[in-house]
């Protein structure tokens, strides 16, 4: 099995999907000959031709509008928004069109074949506009699925799962892991179904929950806690919408404590939804308040990026407070 980084895994998933189904079409700003600003679409135009992998003009609303029509027609578009920070011109197309196409037409038409790929998140010295984690906005849109992989293995399987899923999917790629995260990725075709969280470490004292690049942060915090003799259960949520509340609730009923870590600002972040739901489900099991370790409610800062981030030290401190509650 070859070791791949996250970009190579995504590239491999796209090659698999385009080889398998000639209806798969990949496009976005600079994704054609150049292969995308991060090279996720490298060599796709060479392999599959300009009709199936191409540059678009610089218009996010146009890219997603175009993708919606292409999906409704029966093609399988994989549209790239170059940075999650620039997805907002397409917000109307996503909220009012992509997500409502099936419902409003009584199932006659849909954008179910659409996958939108976009890099998100900080840690690359990207400042306000190359660092945001906008998943919570998209968790509030019935009809859309939102998925975030944590490593190359997950990225390939979940992206193939997203492309094959009969619902529009926003696939958010943790860009600071693009080259930093490397693991063994089978060359064979495999896909991971959407909507399922994964318990990646079992434990008994506290449940730590994150997604994307923050999974490795809670893993580091768990390693620090282990030194103190604390047993952490670690869950990667993987799908933000619909999310796997059952797996999380089962874990919290066992450990009695839930810590949620996400990079996005804390107020109205997706952690709020998880906290509200889990306290309804697990109220009598809780030994400590559900705690969120998240980004500050500021625009994403450049000079103080490190201080802004909900890192393993902040997570470890919160974890200790919860255990001593």
């Amino acid at each position: 099995m070859a070791k791949l980084n996250l970009l190579q895994a995504i590239n491999q998933a796209l090659i698999t999907a385009m080889t398998e189904d000639e209806k798969v079409v990949v496009f976005g700003e600079d994704v054609g000959h150049f292969g995308g600003v991060f090279r996720a679409t490298s060599h796709l135009q060479e392999k599959f031709g300009k009709a199936r992998c191409f540059n678009t003009p610089l218009t996010e609303q146009g890219i997603i509008g175009f993708a919606n029509g292409l999906a409704a027609q029966g093609s399988v578009p994989v549209a790239e928004i170059q940075f999650g920070d620039y997805i907002f011109p397409a917000f109307d197309q996503i909220v009012n069109e992509t997500a409502k196409f099936r419902y409003r037409s009584g199932g006659q038409f849909s954008c179910g074949s659409l996958t939108i790929r976009t890099p998100y998140g900080g840690g690359i010295a990207g400042g306000h506009y190359h660092s945001q984690s906008p998943e919570a906005f998209f968790s509030h849109i019935p009809g859309l699925k939102v998925v975030v992989p944590r490593d190359p293995y997950q990225a390939k399987g979940l992206l193939l799962g997203a492309i094959r899923d009969d619902n529009p999917v926003l696939f958010m790629e943790p860009k600071r892991l693009y080259r930093a995260s490397v693991c063994e990725v089978p060359e064979d075709d495999y896909s991971i179904g959407l909507g399922k969280a994964e318990v990646i470490q079992e434990g008994t004292d506290i449940t730590l929950l994150a997604w994307g690049a923050q999974v490795e942060i809670i893993q580091k915090a768990a390693a620090m806690a282990l030194e103190d003799g604390v047993s952490c259960e670690i869950i990667d949520l993987r799908s933000i919408l619909p999310w796997d509340a059952q797996t999380v609730a089962e874990s919290v009923m066992k450990t009695g404590r839930l810590l949620i870590n996400h990079e996005a600002p804390v107020t109205s972040g997706f952690g709020s939804e998880i906290a509200a739901h889990i306290q309804e489900q697990c109220f009598l099991y809780l030994e400590a308040p559900i705690t969120r370790v998240c980004g500050l409610d500021t625009p994403y800062p450049l000079a103080h990026e490190k201080e802004y981030m909900p890192d393993e030290y902040k997570t470890y401190e919160a974890l200790k407070r919860m255990l001593n509650y």
């Binding site: 919606n68 029509g69 292409l70 409704a72 027609q73």
Partner: peptide, 10 residues
């Protein structure tokens, strides 16, 4: 309008 472009491309 952009959807029509996409539909036609398909």
């Amino acid at each position: 309008i952009p959807q029509a472009a996409g539909y036609a491309y398909g």
